[in-house]
């Protein structure tokens, strides 16, 4: 197992401006955290740092005691990201996309089963280009599930999903959690995220302003 994720006094900048300032959190294995805040509060940046897409400029992140950036080649296989972009090839069908990504990572996966799980028809031959935004999100979710991740990072996962899609997503994330994965979900919809997460980190202008249980949050908290 991966062990705890420690975000130790992490700061990150873009160019001259600091986007994350002194974030300090420990996420224990199997916990599910929601990451709340307005647009531009640093949620995506923190997700980026955790996913090893971005380097942290101050402080450090460790996973199971290992420095994340240093061991990124190793750890990338165990971290799954569902980001703003679906990371799919437009000209390939959903099944082909999954087979390509599975092949690249050397991952064994039941591709038709995965597609059915996210509500896509494995027999469909049309390229992802023809998909609606919601279907693309579903395909991206299936891509993420190829990995059997130990740390799952979700950046605004509810975007473009209909109520059925949201339900599906919550179900999938719950089952990942039950399998022992650690979840970090950036969102500005705390109500939807409550279904999965029991911890919350609120960021404001890059600074953490609340760290702790969701029970301590007001029920009508909103970042619209």
């Amino acid at each position: 197992m991966l062990g705890p994720v420690r975000i130790e006094d992490v700061s990150r900048r873009y160019g001259r401006r600091w986007a994350l300032i002194h974030v300090d959190v420990e996420i224990r294995p199997g916990e599910a955290w929601m990451l709340l805040g307005h647009n531009g509060s640093g949620k995506s940046t923190l997700i980026g740092c955790l996913s090893t897409a971005l380097r942290v400029h101050e402080g450090r992140i460790t996973m199971g005691g290992r420095e994340l950036w240093e061991h990124r080649q190793d750890l990338r296989g165990r971290i799954a990201v569902l980001g703003h972009k679906p990371h799919l090839y437009d000209d390939l069908s959903a099944a082909e996309n999954l087979s390509v990504w599975a092949g690249l990572g050397g991952l064994e996966a039941d591709i038709p089963g995965l597609l059915r799980r996210v509500g896509l028809d494995p027999e469909r031959r049309d390229p992802v280009r023809m998909f609606s935004a919601g279907m693309r999100r579903r395909a991206a979710l299936a891509r993420m599930l190829l990995k059997q991740p130990e740390l799952v990072l979700l950046d605004e996962p509810f975007t473009a999903l209909d109520p059925a899609g949201r339900e599906l997503l919550v179900g999938v994330v719950r089952s990942l959690r039950d399998a022992g994965a650690t979840i970090v979900m950036a969102t500005h919809l705390p109500q939807a995220a409550r279904a999965v997460c029991e911890h919350a980190l609120i960021l404001e202008q890059g600074r953490p302003i609340y760290t702790g249980s969701v029970d301590g949050l007001p029920q009508d908290l909103a970042f619209e």
Binding site: G15, W18, I209, Y210, G216
Partner: peptide, 18 residues
């Protein structure tokens, strides 16, 4: 001139619960 601004200091966080 392109150097980052100095990192703002950590401030005591209001409303932190364990």
């Amino acid at each position: 001139a392109e150097m980052p601004e100095p990192l703002p200091p950590a401030v005591p966080r209001p409303g932190v619960t364990a």
